[in-house]
Nucleic acid binder design. Structure first.
Lengths: 77, 77
DNA sequence: TTAAATGTTGCCATATACGGCATTAAGGTT
DNA sequence: AACCTTAATGCCGTATATGGCAACATTTAA
């Protein structure tokens, strides 16, 4: 899978869970430990950036889900 | 959980799977799509760097496991 | 219409991930 | 001893993730 596809699908997962929880991007950013800007939420959800595992960890915390829930399943080439 | 702890545990998971598969760091780096240096394998496994999701994806591919197998389970604060 | 809420995008600065190479060290083998 | 394999580490560039703010578009509500 291409990089852009991995990022796009990852962002989609975050967006979906965020909306299921009824959070806005602002809500989510505010819940994330440390400094976090809504700009980055937008960039990650839209797949425009390649988040680090620690960033995803903080997002998982804020969404109250496991990291496994935020990553894509497929490992096909 | 602290950032350093997240990175340390993530690296440990990768190391464990790599050794279970009987790969050296050099083997793993060679299997990873695109350029990948053993330097980076070492840094990630030892928790000295904060890998991006795409890097973890490529490692998962090379190890023939799912991304979920490489990330930590806990989401405690 | 005006205003507020929500999300996107552009820009800038700083920190750092990664590619890459060389060195170092430890362990095993001869 | 010398040699090889394996991994860790230091250093240097380049690319980019992130923090942060402002501008903009869209939607909804007043």
């Amino acid at each position: 899978m291409e990089k852009s596809e991995v990022l796009r699908l990852t962002g989609k997962k975050i967006l979906k869970i965020r909306e299921q929880k009824g959070f806005t991007q602002l809500d989510l950013a505010a819940r994330i430990q440390g400094d976090f800007d809504t700009t980055n939420v937008s960039r990650i959800e839209s797949g425009r950036t390649n988040p680090t595992i620690y960033t995803l960890y903080r997002i998982a915390e804020a969404l109250e889900v496991s990291l496994a829930d935020l990553v894509i399943n497929e490992v096909k080439d």
